[in-house]
């Protein structure tokens, strides 16, 4: 009861925060477009229509068409859900696996901790996008592999936070009390340690959404995203480069939607960090 009211209080604080409100205002039109777009746009996102190729924005084609005559509004709208799902899935994967590894390292200590943290350091030593490109380049693109790739490069930050917080929490009297009264390790972790470390993890998760989206669209841009002909914002923009002079509108709508979403997530992340946990997120280097 108390926790729920605190949660709502924090949600309201995020909405009330200038950055939070700004983020929501930015993200709203994109979400609305994603929901009602398919209902009001009469075009099929993958239907080729040669007689309509490279048509500029008009009442008929809101965002214009590409070189194959496909309606860009329909394509952008159909690409929005996947561009949101991939970072969300990747962050969920990274939070879950990263926290598990971090808690294990912080709780067990000893050689296991050293081994796990060494693995974390190896991952951290690689530039993120390069790791993601290597993974997707070797195992192929698509939603599942992109989630896997982005999840893996975001794992270390959650491992570090979870381990650090676990080290802090495990020494607190209430955890000692629970252990001495015979609580088994697993319930001890889920019931007593996890609640104590959840808010820094949540903050980092929200902050990771925008960069997750950035990595996903970058992978698509470089040709490692979804298989064509499925619409994919990054690939659409890469495709537009060849037509920049004669059809600049091909670049505008995907570039605008990607930038809007990243800007929105950045602002939401800032608000969540300010409200929930100003210290930890900054210390962990959320850049």
């Amino acid at each position: 009861m108390i926790r729920r009211s605190r949660f709502w209080h924090q949600i309201r604080a995020v909405v009330g925060h200038p950055s939070g409100r700004f983020g929501l205002i930015l993200i709203a039109p994109v979400l609305i477009l994603a929901v009602i777009g398919p209902l009001v746009i009469p075009w099929d996102p993958i239907q080729i229509n040669p007689s309509d190729s490279l048509v500029g924005p008009s009442a008929r084609h809101w965002f214009g068409t590409d070189q194959l005559g496909r309606d860009l509004a329909a394509r952008v709208v159909s690409a929005i859900p996947v561009v949101l799902w991939v970072p969300l899935g990747a962050v969920l994967l990274a939070v879950t696996a990263g926290s598990a590894v971090g808690i294990l390292a912080g709780y067990r200590r000893g050689w296991l901790e050293r081994l796990l943290m060494a693995g974390t350091d190896v991952l951290l030593a690689m530039p993120g996008l390069l790791t993601a490109i290597l993974i997707v380049g070797v195992f192929g693109g698509g939603a599942r592999n992109m989630i896997l790739a982005i999840g893996i490069i975001y794992l270390p930050r959650f491992t570090r936070i979870a381990r650090g917080s676990t080290l802090e929490v495990r020494g607190l009297p209430y955890v000692d009390a629970a252990r001495l009264s015979g609580t088994k390790p697993l319930p001890l972790v889920t019931r007593h340690i996890l609640p104590g470390i959840s808010s820094p993890l949540f903050v980092m998760a929200v902050l990771s959404l925008s960069t997750g989206l950035l990595v996903q669209t970058s992978l698509s841009f470089l040709g490692f995203g979804f298989e064509p002909p499925a619409a994919d914002l990054g690939r659409m923009l890469a495709n537009a480069v060849d037509f920049l002079v004669i059809a600049p509108w091909m670049a505008i709508s995907p570039a605008l939607v990607i930038t809007l979403l990243i800007l929105a997530f950045n602002n939401l992340g800032d608000a969540v960090r300010d409200v929930m946990d100003p210290e930890v997120a900054r210390a962990a280097g959320a850049v």
Binding site: S210, L214, L244, V245, A251, A255, T259, I262
Partner: peptide
């Protein structure tokens, strides 16, 4: 700076290709 901070490199890259070609 808030806006530019959120512009991905590939978007600014495409923008500069456009500038370079026009």
């Amino acid at each position: 700076s808030l806006l530019f901070f959120s512009v991905p490199t590939f978007v600014s890259g495409v923008l500069f290709v456009w500038l370079g070609s026009i």
